[in-house]
Amino acid sequence: MKVLSVLRVGFLALATLIGAVTMASAADGSIRIRIVKAGFVVGGSGGDGVLTFQGRQYPLAVGGVSYGFTFGASETWFHGKVRNIRKASDVAGVYAQGGAGAALGKGAQVVVLTNQNGAVLELSGEQKGLIVSLDLSGLALSLK
């Protein structure tokens, strides 16, 4: 019985250590992306960007689709942080968002998004154009 208790404690200590090492290996990077969005009911978006991670720059492709009430067109330049990534490819994936907004001329945007890899984007930027939206949208990032 005592052997089982010692094994259980040892196993829990090992699991804790592995978890701590895994958490410690996650890093942050910075990101700049440009998104062009247009639509009438169904909207589409595309763009490009750059991820800076561990001293290297990685070009990004941006795509997406939205459904709901969308009317108009806009261009948004985002910049910010990417958190909780271990390698550059962790930023690739789909980031879902629901929201409402409007821009006439210039407008500010702030957003926090998470993908299936656990990458967290903390972005702020400026939107230009004429667009009104109340929609569900998905933003897809991929490395070029």
Score class of each variant (00 low, 15 high):
Ala24Gly: 01
Asn115Gly: 09
Tyr58Asn: 05
Gly125Ser: 08
Phe53Asp: 09
Ser66Pro: 01
Ala73His: 03
Lys2Ala: 14
Ile18Asp: 05
Ala140Glu: 12
Val3Asp: 12
Ser133Phe: 13
Val132Ile: 14
Gly39Leu: 07
Val3Leu: 10
Ala38Asp: 01
Leu104Lys: 01
Arg8Lys: 11
Leu134Gly: 12
Leu60Trp: 08
Gly129Met: 07
Ile33Asn: 03
Tyr95Pro: 04
Val42Asn: 02
Leu12Asp: 10
Ile131Gly: 02
Phe71Trp: 11
Leu14Pro: 01
Ala92His: 04
Leu141Glu: 07
Leu136Gly: 15
Tyr58Phe: 14
Gly64Phe: 06
Phe53Cys: 09
Gly39Ile: 08
Ile31Asn: 06
Lys128Tyr: 12
Gly80Glu: 07
Ala38Thr: 07
Lys87Cys: 07
Val21Tyr: 13
Ile31Arg: 06
Phe78His: 11
Arg56Asp: 11
Ala73Pro: 03
Gly64Lys: 05
Ser25Glu: 12
Leu143Tyr: 10
Val132Ala: 15
Ser5His: 05
Glu126Ala: 07
Gly101Met: 04
Gly105Met: 07
Ala38Asn: 03
Val9Pro: 00
Leu14Gly: 04
Ala119Gly: 05
Ala38Leu: 11
Ser124His: 10
Lys2Trp: 04
Leu60Ser: 08
Ala108Asp: 15
Lys81Ile: 00
Gly47Glu: 06
Thr114Cys: 01
Arg34Phe: 01
Ala20Trp: 13
Leu7Gln: 05
Val111Gln: 13
Ala88Pro: 12
Val36Asp: 13
Gly46Glu: 02
Tyr58Cys: 03
Asp90Tyr: 09
Val36Asn: 13
Gly105Tyr: 09
Gly47Ile: 04
Ala96Asn: 12
Ile131Ala: 11
Gly80Met: 06
Met1Asn: 08
Ala26His: 13
Ser89Ile: 07
Ser133Asp: 10
Ile33Leu: 14
Lys81Trp: 02
Gly29Glu: 11
Phe78Met: 04
Val50Leu: 06
Ala15Tyr: 03
Val112Pro: 01
Gly46Ser: 12
